[in-house]
Design a protein around this nucleic acid. Structure first.
Length: 137
DNA sequence: GCCAACGTTGGC
DNA sequence: GCCAACGTTGGC
């Protein structure tokens, strides 16, 4: 079971909107980066991920689950990119901010710090556990 | 609003 | 196929 991190600007697509989408979830479209695409192609149903608010908030606010594996992104006219479906699982009891992550030695290798602009990132089991613990989950 | 990082494009 | 120019992302 792999873990991931999905980044979204809350005024475009927020955690609240993801929660409102319910158990049916939504497609995660609009990714136009090949590394992010490759990450999405590795995702399996049941994989879990963090939902991160970029720009405003700059914190991990919730946990999502992959409910459909990759298929063509219909909003991509070049036909090269893909998307997956995800659903909200639960919010974190306490959001974990970027500023906090920067201060945790075990999290210095996170893609969030090393590949700041990548919108879909892998999260290791170790990083996953450390963040869950800090979130009180 | 600025700017660094970095991915993409396009001329050669 | 290289690399400079350009555009975009996202933290500050």
């Amino acid at each position: 079971m792999a873990h991931w991190l999905f980044k979204s600007e809350p005024f475009k697509w927020s955690w609240d909107m993801q929660v409102a989408a319910g158990a049916e979830g939504t497609f995660w479209n609009g990714v136009r980066n090949h590394l992010a695409k490759q990450n999405m192609m590795k995702m399996k149903i049941g994989d879990t991920g963090f939902f991160y608010h970029s720009n405003e908030g700059k914190e991990i606010v919730g946990i999502v689950e992959v409910i459909r594996e990759y298929y063509p992104d219909h909003t991509d006219e070049t036909g090269k990119f893909v998307m997956v479906d995800i659903k909200a699982v639960r919010p974190l009891p306490r959001a974990v901010s970027l500023a906090e992550i920067k201060q945790v030695p075990e999290l210095q290798t996170m893609s969030l710090l090393t590949s700041a602009r990548l919108s879909v990132q892998p999260v290791t089991d170790g990083e996953w556990d450390v963040i869950l613990k800090r979130a009180g989950a």
